[in-house]
């Protein structure tokens, strides 16, 4: 319980930090902390395997990719937001729309039904049951995901590997 609320605070704070910091590197660090807290949240939901994945794939792989791109391309650059904005009528409506959406979601969440109260099986969220479900019930989704990854790999190689870019 306490763990959950600590994680919540960390999640929200680092989330704001991610979108607020001037330097992308700071954002990535915020994001790493955010994802770690998220893994703990998964643990409180008895999703052990997901927590591992969250750390390994997200914090480990994707964010490292972000870091690479940042260090390779933008080190020493002035933060983008120093220059004048082109979109004059963007900030206020965005914040307003965000707050409105938040309010509506809160309204919706308030109506959420309490849990069914079914007793959890012992192996809920374990690697074994997860693997069993993934490769039997959800085999098709699994295969499609594999295909999407393949397409993404090909696309990335095509785009990033090109010498000259024209747009």
């Amino acid at each position: 319980m306490v763990l959950f609320w600590i994680c919540t605070v960390v999640l929200l704070l680092t989330g704001i930090g991610v979108i607020a910091s001037r330097q992308p590197v700071h954002s990535v660090i915020g994001l790493i902390v955010n994802f770690t807290a998220l893994a703990v949240v998964f643990l409180t939901l008895s999703a052990d395997f997901l927590a591992m994945m969250q750390i390994i794939i997200y914090a480990g792989a994707i964010l490292v990719l972000f870091l690479f791109v940042i260090t390779l391309l933008t080190v020493g650059n002035e933060p983008v937001e120093r220059g004048p904005s082109r979109l004059s009528f963007q900030t206020a409506p965005s914040v307003a729309a965000g707050l409105a959406a938040l309010a509506l979601l809160a309204l919706g969440v308030r109506n959420a039904q309490p849990s069914a109260g079914i007793a959890l099986p012992a192996d809920f969220g374990s690697v074994a049951s997860f693997g069993l479900q993934l490769l039997t019930t959800h085999l098709f989704a699994f295969e499609v995901t594999a295909f999407i990854l393949l397409v993404a790999v090909i696309g990335v190689v095509l785009m990033a590997g090109r010498k000259e870019v024209r747009f």
Partner: peptide
């Protein structure tokens, strides 16, 4: 949970 796993994968892509 399976769906979360798939989302993570797609997010990676």
């Amino acid at each position: 949970q399976i769906f979360v796993f798939i989302v993570i994968t797609v997010a990676a892509a």
